[in-house]
């Protein structure tokens, strides 16, 4: 069975690059770019791993994660959060919301792949 990842990110060029490296690694990749409708998309896609940007149009990644963790269906969903904000306060906010891994831009392809695969294997 395919490993499924849902990438919620609003930067088309970044989506293109991350999608490419994940597909090359054997992942089935779906993408979504709108924060406001992200929850519905996650429910529909039922991914094995969620890659979630913080700054999204319509709703922040933090809010999306808050709502996700309040839903018993998604309490254990591995979530890799991407952000350009590396301050301690943002990391703390992500941890409070229940993030599995937190990655700050500019990250490398290898780091993204390693994190997504580790989350799939059950590592945090």
């Amino acid at each position: 069975m395919d490993k499924r990842v849902l990438l919620i990110e609003d930067e088309p060029n970044l989506i293109e690059a991350i999608r490419f490296i994940l597909i090359r690694d054997g992942w089935a990749v779906q993408t979504h770019s709108d924060g406001a409708t992200a929850i519905a998309r996650i429910r529909e896609a039922r991914p094995d791993v969620l890659v979630l940007d913080v700054m999204l149009p319509g709703r922040s990644g933090f809010d999306i994660l808050d709502e996700l963790r309040a839903d018993p269906d998604f309490t254990a969903l591995p979530v890799l959060m991407l952000t350009a904000k590396g301050q301690a306060a943002d990391r703390e906010r992500a941890e409070q919301a229940g993030v599995s891994r937190f990655m700050t831009k500019p990250f490398s392809n290898a780091e993204v792949l390693e994190s997504v695969n580790a989350l799939m294997a059950g590592g945090a």
């Binding site: 930067e11 060029n13 970044l14 293109e16 690059a17 991350i18 490419f20 490296i21 090359r24 700054m55 350009a84 904000k85 831009k105 500019p106 990250f107 490398s108 392809n109 290898a110």
Partner: peptide, 21 residues
Amino acid sequence: LHELLTAVTAIRSSTSILAGT
């Protein structure tokens, strides 16, 4: 800074794909 970091990330990722594939 968000704009710059996002652009740098996309460049880094694309360059890596072009150079490493």
